[in-house]
Design a binder for these strands. Structure first.
Lengths: 203, 203
DNA sequence: ATAGCGTCCGACCGATCGGTCGCTATATTG
DNA sequence: CAATATAGCGACCGATCGGTCGGACGCTAT
């Protein structure tokens, strides 16, 4: 029996442990990559045993999926929710982009946007992780596209606006920003991103 | 003595072997990542022994650096050279972007642009590999920025053009394209990228 | 002819990977 | 209180990782 290491075995404590694991996984994965995440180091980091950790998920893949789903919750909280109260259409679109830039600038995920880096990590491979990534990106693109279309119907954006084109370019701005921050640190990049968004979303 | 497996020991053959290793490394790394590249599988893939392979580079890191430098040669050949003969300024800039999009579309690196994916892979880490990546990106950005400035002085681009801003956005277009291709396959993405470039480089 | 050099191999190393298994200790249920 | 369910642990597994080492082989210069 170790002193100060009293293990808990209630269902409530188990849920709490699971939360701790997932949260730490998201942070670690954003730095080391979803694949670079290792059970051993994660367990050591959390002060629990490998088998105790793996008991919550069964396999590493299940842990990766849980981390990705949690990351989506965080992304939603940081990027969508701040602008959810804004008027639908262009104002909300501008709010989302502002929050998006801020989210990258504040490095909510210490190693950059987990979704972007994970996409490149799972380039050639298949499997459930990649399938989840695809679904998540599709969902986010659909949200943006819907908002762009709304801005078009309200006349806030020109009637000949190609929604897919605009979303494609907004994505590009955010990826360029993410890349610049990760490679050089912030610098001028956030200002460049804001200027690009302002031009893309000009009336 | 195995039949048909006659080993070569001349210096010329050694150079050839080295080339084969590097070329295969670039392809593999673009799919599996620079870190995901493993000596054992690479050696097996090439039909040589691990130790024979490692003898050419000493360490895995040296192999990674060699692969990155080779990737830069390929990138230069595929993206810069096709436009090198064009008139400096806007025509050359347009040529580079066209070649850049084509390079991503043809998937010259089967797992997408090795530089972009490597950047995200080495997010938080330091070390020589990351330093080389930074140098390579700086050099490429400098080339683009120089070309943009030239187009401004010739009057092909507006005099108030912010070169860093334009390069930042061109980067974004290419990253968005790279991302779309890797995640969904080509689809409309190349056309979207061309339209975005055309708008960014309008006179 | 032969000595030396460089290429490449096979065997092996310690570390670490994801994962399994049997067990203990506790919380919950009847 | 007794029985059951389960969180978590420690030991262990086979596979694979990057890397080392001694030697076999063949080219080349003397």
């Amino acid at each position: 029996m170790l002193v100060g290491m009293s293990p808990r075995h209630s269902a409530a404590e188990a849920r709490h442990t699971r939360e701790r694991i997932i949260e730490r996984s998201v942070d670690l994965a954003s730095v080391e990559g979803l694949e670079g995440l290792t059970i051993g180091r994660l367990a050591l980091d959390l002060g629990i045993s490998k088998s105790g950790l793996l008991g919550h998920f069964g396999t590493k893949e299940a842990l990766q999926l849980a981390a990705l789903e949690r990351a989506a919750v965080v992304f939603n909280r940081e990027v969508w929710r701040p602008a959810a109260d804004a008027t639908p259409g262009l104002p909300r679109l501008r709010g989302v982009c502002a929050a998006w830039i801020s989210y990258l600038e504040r490095e909510v995920f210490p190693g950059g946007c987990l979704f972007v880096s994970s996409t490149f990590e799972y380039d050639g491979r298949g499997g459930p992780v990649r399938a989840l990534l695809q679904r998540q990106f599709r969902a986010w693109e659909l949200r943006l596209t819907t908002e762009v279309r709304r801005a078009v119907t309200t006349g806030e954006l020109p009637p000949d606006t190609d929604a897919a084109q605009l979303v494609f370019e907004l994505y590009g701005v955010m990826m360029s920003l993410n890349h610049a921050i990760q490679l050089y640190g912030a610098g001028r990049a956030p200002a460049l991103a804001r200027a690009a968004v302002a031009r893309l979303l000009a009336t």
